[in-house]
């Protein structure tokens, strides 16, 4: 609850643009590898290629939300603002990846399963996860006071992350107790290399995006801090 005395600092850009270029190139390379080398699937034909974005996006969603959990816990322990800004950045990137996972899953599901949506355990729990983190971002948008926003969103982020396995378990029971269908999830070895390559490429892109959003969040905070300092009649942030 202490008022900020020193201006928050903007992290140095350093070599991050190079990392961004590397992430983009590795994504292009991994996609090319997937498109060129893997044969058409027996049942799905070239529709299978959507896996190289859909599955890495799903995995990285969980990575991003894990970052939210860790950063939120660290914020509550240390009360250092950078952890809060990191959690917010990771939540934004995670929500985008989560939405991408859902959209691509629907595009994939329509030709293979014949429906845009099915109440399968994974689909449903991914959707619930998306809703939980949409709520997290909405909370951040609706609370203006900085300390409040940071503490509240840390609490919401932690509780949301705790709930992920419980949601998955409950939805899975709901489906299996009804005995309808299970999800096909075995991957033929010829696709594994491309899938791994794309998973790493999307991981790099995720890290880069989180970093960029973090820098942007820090810059926005400094601007906010200077406005406050100016309004209070103090010196500017330098």
């Amino acid at each position: 609850m202490t008022a900020p005395t020193a201006a928050p600092s903007i992290p140095a850009t350093g070599r991050w643009p190079w990392f961004g270029a590397f992430a983009l190139l590795s994504l292009i390379g991994a996609q090319a590898l997937g498109l060129l080398t893997s044969p058409a699937d027996r049942d799905m034909g070239h529709l299978q290629k959507i896996m190289y974005v859909h599955v890495p996006a799903a995995w990285m969603t969980f990575v991003a939300f894990f970052v939210v959990l860790v950063a939120s816990l660290r914020y509550l322990m240390t009360r250092e603002e950078r952890h809060d800004l990191l959690a917010a950045s990771a939540a934004e990137v995670g929500a985008v990846l989560n939405g991408l996972t859902l959209a691509l899953g629907m595009i994939w599901g329509r030709p293979t399963w014949g429906v845009w949506w099915t109440w399968d355990a994974r689909l449903t729990s991914t959707l619930v996860l998306f809703l939980i983190f949409v709520g997290y971002l909405a909370l951040r948008g609706f609370v203006d006071e900085r300390d409040r926003r940071a503490q509240w969103s840390a609490a919401v982020g932690i509780l949301g992350a705790i709930n992920v396995p419980i949601v998955y378990m409950s939805v899975k029971w709901w489906r299996t107790l009804h005995q309808l269908q299970s999800s096909p999830s075995t991957v033929d070895p010829v696709y594994v290399l491309s899938l791994r390559a794309n998973a790493f490429a999307v991981l790099f892109v995720t890290i880069y995006f989180i970093r960029r959003r973090y820098e942007a969040a820090c810059i926005a905070r400094v601007a906010e801090w200077r406005r406050e300092a100016f309004a209070l009649g103090g010196t500017s942030g330098q």
């Binding site: 619930v128 809703l131 709520g135 909405a138 919401v156 378990m169 939805v171």
Partner: peptide
């Protein structure tokens, strides 16, 4: 905001 935060979190309880 309250239902938006609360309802997704409560899905396991409601379902169960």
């Amino acid at each position: 905001l309250l239902p938006l935060l609360l309802f997704p979190m409560l899905i396991p309880v409601i379902l169960a």
